[in-house]
């Protein structure tokens, strides 16, 4: 399914990460997953949260540059080969993956993959064809 991922600009400076997470905590926002893409000068925080629109508003109000990006979330088993299976499916359909990250879900034995693909519609269609497109709760 398609979900909103929150992205936040973070200058490489002490305390930036603490400021961002504190703002979210104060707004009672639950972070499900977080990853950072960084360069020498700056980082881009990517987060999956329970209330992305509210989180975006909170961060903007706090003076951060942030955006929401629709990404693909896939629920898989938490066992060897699950990740490979999904990625191979995208490879065979020639849908390029910009980036992905995975995290273990609360429900025992399951994991989630978050994928940012070049062609999101093709990616979503691909998931539906393979029976992975259903909505689910993180």
């Amino acid at each position: 399914m398609i979900i909103d991922q929150l992205a936040v600009f973070s200058e490489n400076k002490a305390g930036m990460l603490a400021d961002i997470t504190t703002l979210l905590a104060e707004a009672d926002i639950d972070i499900e997953a977080l990853t950072i893409a960084d360069t020498a000068d700056f980082g881009v925080l990517r987060l999956i949260v329970d209330a992305p629109k509210k989180a975006l508003a909170v961060l903007k109000l706090g003076g951060f540059v942030a955006s929401l990006t629709p990404v693909i979330a896939v629920k898989t088993g938490n066992d060897p080969g699950s990740l490979a299976k999904v990625v191979r499916m995208f490879a065979e359909a020639e849908v390029s993956i910009e980036y992905l990250y995975a995290f273990v879900a609360r429900e025992a034995g399951t994991a989630f993959m978050i994928l940012r693909v070049e062609d999101r519609d093709a990616g979503a269609a691909l998931l539906a064809q393979n029976g992975l497109g259903e909505a689910f709760k993180m």
Binding site: F9, A37, V65, T69
Partner: peptide
């Protein structure tokens, strides 16, 4: 950094 220049992609 501005909204216009920002992206989730580095």
């Amino acid at each position: 950094m501005t909204e216009e220049m920002f992206s989730d992609e580095v």
